[in-house]
Structures are given as structure tokens and as C-alpha cells.
Computed example of a mutant assay.
Amino acid sequence: MVSAALSEALGEWLEQQRSLNGAAENTLSAYQTDVLGFLGFMTQHNGAAQGLGPVSRITVSDMRSWMAHERARGVAARSLARSLSAVKSFYRWLAEREGFEPTAVLTTRSPKFQKKLPRPLAVDAARAMIDTVEMQARAPWIALRDVAVVTLLYGCGLRISEALGLTGADVPLPETLRIRGKGGKERLVPVIPAARSAVSAYLRACPYPAEPEAPVFRGARGGPLYPKAIQSVMAQARMQLGLPATATPHALRHSFATHLLNAGGDLRSIQELLGHASLSTTQAYTAVDTARLMEVYDKAHPKAAGARSDP
């Protein structure tokens, strides 16, 4: 059980995450679940309902007990690290508001886990995917629709939710598209001619009008197109091409970033195109061999450039 005062505090913190930090609703829901799960454990562990007083007295031993409990019930290290991050964020905010010492919680180490690196497609595989997707649908306009979506994912680095979130007000596609991404953050994305052409071809064939407030991409019956449809058509195409299960819509976004970097793109610019807040996230999205990284380093780093100019 959680006291009314602590529950109110949690609500205020979540609202701050929404209004000031632009957290998405799914993120807020995950935060709430993680923090309430933590507080629920502390209630059972200490044998008393959690209020502002008991929470301020959580010890290092309490934290270790919670971590051990979570691992014992099968929570993966990655998931536990996410939960701990949410708990720390809430606790840091609460400690500042209530004036207590948060060290016991904030110094708790996150469990180690191996980060899963994304697996982009090779350039020829990405092109083959677009060609093969077109052959999956019986209705010509649906085939053109699927090609348009997949071309946007690979050609512009969009998330599938961003591509499917386009409305009639966004078409015809301009040379630069304003995208609202995660957390409501906006970014400008250049739209390559192939993507504009694919979307135009789809719109000419689509039996449903591109109304300003309606989604650009429609399902077979005219409703909004859902990610599952694109995931399904790509699954069919990758089976025909002999590609691994990692060849998903999101892999095309990874491919966009990796292929740009391999072609000489700047990592900071790619970060902006993808809408990443952290450069480390962009680095994880780009799979490039060590030789290529050293080549970029040698050309760009001032020390490396200086060494070449020395007699």
C-alpha cells in the first residue's frame, strides 16, 4: 500500500515528466508501473505501508533486497535496469522536494547486461526488400502503399509510427519534412526523391482521399494502417529473400543510419536526422567496421590531421 501523500507525489512527478520533459504516455505508464512495483515490494519487505517517512529511510540493504527479489522472480537484467532508473529518477525528485538524503537509492548499481546492437540490412538487401514488398499484395494500390511506407523507413530513417502518423496535411511530401518524434520532439528530415515519388504513386492509386486530418496510409477498408500490416508484409518478403528475422521495419531505420555513415555521413548530422537525444544512441544504431571508424577518425580528428602535416 502507498499513502495518499506518496501517491500524490508520484502523480506530480509523472506530470512533470510529461509537461517539462515531454515523456510519451507509454513511457509514463512504464514509469508508474516500475515505481509502484518498487514501493509495493518495500511495503511487504518492511511490513508497513509506504509513505513519505518510510520512503525517506530506505537503506542500501533494502535496495539489495529489492534487486535480489526482482532477479529471483525472473526479471531480466535489462528490465531491472530500466526499473531502477525510474525509481532513481523519482527518488531524486522526491528527495529534493522533501529534503531528505537519497544516497542509499541513488548509489545502487544497475545490473550489467549486454546491449543488443541493431542489425541493419546490407545495401543490396534493403533494395531487394523494397522490390519484394511490392509483390506481396494482390491489390495494386496496397502494393504501392507498402512500397511507399518501406521507402520512407529506409530513405528517411523514420520510425514506423512516424511514417504511419503522416496525415493528408503532409502531402504532397515537401523536400524537407517536419517530424514529431518520441516525446513530442520535432526534427527536420530531408525527403529523397524516391520517397516522394513512391508516396505520390500510392496517393494516385489509393481509393481514399488524402483529407487533411486523415492518415495518409490507409488499411484495406479505409481505416488507419497499423504497424502490424507492414511487419507482416516484410516478414513475407524476408522469407522469400532468405533474410533473417531481424530484417524488420525498424531494421530499415538502422540501415538508413549505417549506410549514411558508411557513405561518409557525419555522426552528429545522422543523430539529428534520427531524432536521438544522445549521440551514444546514434552510435548503437550504426554498424560500421573498425577500419571505417578509424578512417573517419583519421580524417576528422585535429590530432590526427596535425600528425599528417608534420615533416
Rank of each mutant, 00 (worst) to 15 (best):
G184E: 08
P174A: 05
G223P: 04
G168S: 10
V191F: 01
A220C: 06
M239R: 15
M234E: 14
S200H: 11
F217V: 05
I142P: 00
Q236A: 13
P190R: 02
P193F: 06
V150F: 09
Q136N: 09
G242E: 08
I160W: 00
T248C: 11
K228G: 09
S197Q: 13
L153A: 02
L144K: 15
V171I: 11
L166V: 09
A210V: 06
Y154D: 03
A198Q: 07
R196C: 05
P174W: 02
I230W: 01
A139S: 11
G181I: 05
S255C: 03
P215Q: 14
I142S: 03
L164Q: 05
I192C: 09
M135E: 15
I230N: 03
Y208D: 04
E186W: 12
R178D: 04
A210R: 08
V149M: 09
V150I: 14
P249I: 11
V149H: 02
R253Q: 09
G183V: 00
R145W: 06
G223R: 13
P207G: 05
A143L: 02
R196Y: 10
V189M: 07
I192E: 03
A148M: 12
W141H: 04
R196K: 14
E213L: 11
W141T: 13
P193I: 11
L252F: 13
L243W: 07
L166T: 11
T176R: 15
L252A: 10
M239C: 12
L158S: 02
P224Q: 07
S232Y: 14
